[in-house]
Amino acid sequence: MFAYVVRRIFVGVIMLFVMSLVTYLLFFAAPSDPARYTCGKNCSPELIEQNRKALGYDKPVLVQYGEFVKGVFVGREFPDDPELKKSAPETIASCPAPCLGYSPLQSATVTSLIAEAAPISISLAFMAFLMWMVFGISGGIIAALYKGRFADRALVGSALVVYSFPTFFIGLSLYIFVAIKWQLTPIPVYTPISEGGVGAWLSGLFLPSLTLALIYIAGYIRLTRAFVLESMGEDYIRTARAKGLPQRQIMGKHTMRAALTPIATVAGLDLGALLAGAIITETVFNYNGLGKLAVQAATTYDLPTTVGIVLVAAAFIITANIIVDVLYAVIDPRVKYS
């Protein structure tokens, strides 16, 4: 088991390297000039050349990639010029490890941009995760227990309706009605725990995470319902009934154990994917999370930031995959890793 985890982490790291190389090549080896996008409208040819040199875009792509990787582990400086460092140290941007690059458009290191945005996205993702797991799974169980009856039809029907709405519609509707018109909640603004305490943090997160969770709740109701019904039809449930177990024990112990195990897998992967930012929800509620940062970076041709976010997203997903696989060995006795 331990050997398996070590091997999975090792493979995960290799995957990250491959991911980073591919992403790097994709953005910097494209038939466009990355230096052209380092300054806004008032780009002069001199400024472009200066930035090209400062960011190392004048070197061969693989050398650039090598410097990027080196920067991740030991940090780097832009421009990496010892003479300039002596004559004018204030013009040098320092990027300590783990350095994911420097964004001249935002005049900030990519690492600091991500570090600022990540807590928002992570808070949002975990809050939504909590909501959709609680409501999605309990809804699915209720629907399965009352299969074909009113509760089932109502749950599955409303899940279908919610599922069909685009996130921006749900988000905007909640924003306009719940927060503005009816004033049931304050206007959602992200407040870190360090600034406003847990209460302000939670109330700021409520509407956006609900928006995010609703789509997942709808999906998880259907998923849980299907897994529970499948499990209820299994031979070992018939055995449990033949043993004379009470219905509660049959459902609570035998059916649920078999039905919820596959849900753990799906949930882990969904959460991993969501940690890297919920683009639409963050945009609707003007939350400066990773999703919004990614959109901003992509629309302004902010190549270093884009590469950085793609890598962080990949790291989240790879990590979630490893955790889910290891977790599976814990919850399913048939799965043994060696």
């Binding site: 449990a240 035998h254 154990r257 078999a258 195990t261 399913d332």
Partner: peptide, 8 residues
């Protein structure tokens, strides 16, 4: 299939 796979 008649025995539950997750319990001893």
């Amino acid at each position: 299939s008649a025995l539950h796979p997750y319990y001893t």
